[in-house]
Nucleic acid binder design. Structure first.
Lengths: 196, 196
DNA sequence: ACTTTTTGAGACACTAGAGTCCCATTTTTA
DNA sequence: TAAAAATGGGACTCTAGTGTCTCAAAAAGT
């Protein structure tokens, strides 16, 4: 054992493969079998059990991992820097890019709620951004920041879903989400291309 | 037997109670047990089995019933009449009011996809409304009608969810959804109260 | 009041999926 | 190359949930 016991090359790799496969499969069908997950991870079912004692433990690990990825995406977006609108655009782009993981993490809230030590740093950052934007007058101040956040998640989720199902060209997704999120579906000011 | 065999008073009532309980429970947790559903419906488990041979049959019935309610809501909104914007507002209001059922029917798309004879009259009506609005220039014409529809469902779903969890006062929900759906989260034109 | 229908409760058999072991290989590491 | 670690496969057991059946009581209909 050269490195720390937690992430030693071999173990770490298999573990990640399992968690990743779990997130991907469970995102599509949360009733996916452990056998299916093991197969998708190209690992024996017994190996899977060696890493995760029971289903709950695996699911929890997959959720935590996905949340970590999402948090990282939010961090990368540096939402506390620059104009709020630009920050929000970076945020959306980063989130949509997490694809599978986002669909999984928010596909079944019940799993998330059972997470005792769910650290909502992510929500905190997003909330801060929204409130900053409201204070600056660029985001609707007549609704709560919570509602706007719910809207953002919903739109991002919708975009990721549409992308996964190929209903929208993968590149255009973020642009679509941003456009609709910012301006809604109305277009009373016809003739004025907004985003372009 | 005085009336048709399908809806005779007693049978019809129990059946509806079961389907309704199923939709409500499954909306909250789609892994709800048949025993739990029976209990919620205040019915013996054997009685439940008497009406629905197996779980699939019950789920299918619950989905179909929910879809029917939703379709009725859309019909009531008469989306093909009057100004598109007003029609859309009626639509959103009607959908949000279906609450549980909407959360259930769209909470797990996989169930819906397994429905062989899913008649998408509902989607048709909504699509028509959107396309009419786009033609008239009141709805964003630069994105597909499909995308707008996805947005509408997402926002309505989010609103229903927020209402169920009590994060938004029940009456205000529809207004919130409409406001954000129409105008997005941006508010560059500060000082101009849009909806009021 | 009498007949028919519907019901609830319990006993049972069955199954898919979960979780546990063991052991012969392969892979890694020293 | 030898020792140690990791793996895959298979054989099990166990359980929750499902589905079936029977029977006596309650409800509804006549």
């Amino acid at each position: 054992m050269s490195t720390t016991s937690a992430e030693s090359g071999a173990r770490g790799r298999t573990r990640r493969a399992i968690v990743s496969a779990a997130a991907t499969l469970l995102a599509r069908d949360r009733r996916a079998t452990l056998a299916e997950i093991a197969q998708a991870a190209e690992v024996g079912r017994s190996t899977l059990h060696r890493y995760f004692a029971d289903r709950d433990e695996l699911v929890r690990a997959a959720v935590e991992d996905s949340l970590a990825l999402i948090e990282q995406a939010v961090l990368d977006a540096a939402v506390d820097e620059g104009p709020c609108v630009d920050a929000m655009r970076r945020l959306v782009t980063a989130l949509v890019a997490t694809g599978d993981r986002l669909l999984f993490a928010f596909g079944d809230l019940s799993v998330l709620e059972e997470l005792p030590d769910y650290d909502d740093r992510t929500e905190r950052m997003v909330t801060d951004l929204i409130e900053r934007g409201q204070a600056e007058g660029v985001f609707d101040p007549e609704v709560s920041a919570g509602w706007i956040m719910a809207t953002v998640w919903a739109m991002v989720y919708t975009g990721a879903e549409a992308a996964q199902q190929g209903r929208v060209p993968p590149h255009g997704v973020a642009a679509h989400v941003i456009r609709t999120l910012e301006g809604g579906i109305r277009r009373p000011d016809a003739g004025t291309p907004a985003t372009r």
